[in-house]
Amino acid sequence: MSALSRFLRTPEAVAGAFLLAALFAMALSAPLLFPGDPQAIAGPALLPPFQAWSLPLGTDRLGRDVLAELFHGARTSLAVGLAAAAAALAVGAVIGTLAGFAGGLVDEVLMRITDAFQTVPAFLLALAFVSVVGPSLGVVVVAIALGTWTGPARVARAEVLSIRERDYVASARAVGMHPLAIAFREVLPNALPPVLALSSVIVAAAILTEAALSFLGLGDPNRVTWGGMIAEGRTVLRTAPFLSVVPGIALVLTVLGVYLAGEGIVEATAVRRGLS
């Protein structure tokens, strides 16, 4: 409760939470407000915003409703961002914990693999993976996670290295607990807070990566994405800039919201840890 009140006391965190709430509302209400296919033709092509009541943000080159696309695009951004970040955090935490707790050869091998992934730019990795396997929502999620799990892995390992020397790990060994149970029941939960602190950055990065992939035409072709909308609008940037600007602003606000809310959560929980 007190962490929540501390969270709500910082204006940045409240702004972030507000933006995120708006994003979730968009994503959840999309099928209700715009029940049809957002990629269906809804009116005349290249209708500017605020001209027709039924099409408040106008239409794109093919006459599709921009507002409907924006709402449905929020679903994709959010789904990919959260799923990719969750996958990256889970894989990173498990690999980091195993490496840090086992030490020796296991640590050496796992960390060299981490190095290998980290030396390749995350976006190139995602690009290569999607072009080989083919674009679909699941593949995009895996592609983004491939390039982002190394950060959580390193943070988890560093934390585990310090935790495994603590007395309570020694007590668990003295009681006769299995090493894997020690790693995942005693060590991992206590190594998580700094790893989770990375989540806002990772979610934001994943949303941006997804948009970039879509922009390059490597997004799921059956779904509306903000990156794809920007790419669509690019060809008519001079005559109809709103087609790129509207999803661009949505993207900026989303990333900002995720980042601010994440920071707020870290701050609020850090204060509590500092006190106790």
Partner: peptide
């Protein structure tokens, strides 16, 4: 070894550090 540890136990100096903080 883990089974035999039942017969040989230990109590640490710092009673707070010897427990998982979430326990």
């Amino acid at each position: 070894l883990r089974a035999r540890r039942a017969r040989l136990q230990m109590v640490f100096q710092d009673p707070l550090a010897a427990f998982n903080p979430r326990a």
